[in-house]
């Protein structure tokens, strides 16, 4: 067998160079900078800075507020991930069975994907607004005084609903294509063995969807942790106050709003470590239990 290869070492390096440069400039260099500035307290304009060792980190871990934000981030990620995956799966299973007008259903369920997070956030602001929001009116009709921006859990509710809403279409598309890739003969065999639709779903369909579900789980956790920034920013309306926020939004609030470069760098290093741990955990532990066919 003929071994394909390059005649010398320079050509492959040359061909890889653009990609390596991009990674170095846009990933490693900023990451290195963040680690470095997390050990300093810096004048916002960059005139003075003082080496403070691990003080930024110790301040962070001693802060009750940071702990509260971390707890909320965990809860938010769990709820957004679980709700959007479950809803999308249900919709996909139902849409899979539709024969007439399937294309219309699917399009109607998918278009939301095209809405940008800040736009979704703005729609949330309108729907949940204290003075003019229609969801607020609905709550009032049930006798509940819904207060976006005043009540912590009311604001959290709006953030979760909007974040889930915008994420369902992505999950829906993947689940649907996963369902449609399950071979017909497997379904037919299952139909003979088990007449219960519910049992068939959990014993046959769901395990066969596991690779898709696992992939989506990672995508959704990442989404809830990072990509919901635009939604949170618009719902908070430039007033962090007592509103719930995620760790990523806190980095922005302290660094870009408060101009505390050192403190917010320390926070972003914590996030880097978190993401690293999450990635290792997911691939080492969870992937073993999934059977790819």
């Amino acid at each position: 067998m003929k071994r394909a290869g390059f005649a010398n070492y320079w050509l492959p390096i040359l061909l890889l160079l653009p990609q390596l440069t991009i990674i170095a400039v846009f990933f490693y260099w900023p990451a290195f900078n963040a680690v470095q500035s997390s050990f300093y307290l810096q004048d916002p304009f960059g005139f003075g800075s003082q080496f403070v060792g691990f003080e930024n980190y110790s301040d962070l871990f001693a802060s009750k507020e940071y702990a509260k934000v971390a707890r909320f981030t965990l809860l938010f990620t769990l709820l957004v991930t679980a709700t959007s995956l479950a809803t999308a799966l249900l919709l996909a299973v139902k849409a899979d069975k539709v024969l007439r007008g399937a294309r219309t259903y699917k399009t109607l369920l998918m278009w939301v994907y095209a809405v940008a997070p800040p736009v979704a956030g703005l729609m949330g602001v309108m729907l949940f607004d204290q003075n003019i929001g229609s969801v607020t009116d609905l709550f009032a009709w049930f006798g509940y005084d819904y207060r976006l921006g005043v009540n912590y859990w009311d604001t959290a509710f709006a953030m979760i609903i909007v974040s889930v809403w915008i994420q369902i279409p992505v999950n829906f598309i993947f689940f649907l294509s996963g369902l449609q890739s399950i071979p017909q003969h497997v379904r037919e065999a299952a139909m003979i063995d088990n007449p219960s639709g519910f049992g068939r779903f959990w014993q046959i369909t769901f395990p066969l969807l596991a690779p898709t579900a696992f992939f989506l789980l990672i995508i959704n956790i990442t989404y809830a942790l990072f990509d919901t920034f635009g939604i949170i920013d618009t719902l908070v309306k430039n007033n962090p106050a007592s509103n719930p926020m995620t760790l990523v939004y806190k980095v922005f609030v302290d660094g870009f709003r408060g101009n505390d470069m050192g403190g917010s760098s320390a926070q972003s290093v914590v996030l880097m470590v978190l993401v690293l741990a999450l990635t290792i955990f997911q691939f080492r532990l969870l992937e073993r239990r999934i059977h790819y066919t």
């Binding site: 962090p240 007592s242 302290d254 408060g258 101009n259």
Partner: peptide, 21 residues
């Protein structure tokens, strides 16, 4: 200095107090 953050802390705690948190 860092007064933007100090204002944010005030808003946070005032709101918590006023909403009974």
């Amino acid at each position: 200095g860092f007064y933007v953050q100090i204002r944010d802390v005030m808003n946070r705690e005032y709101t918590r107090y006023l909403t009974g948190e």
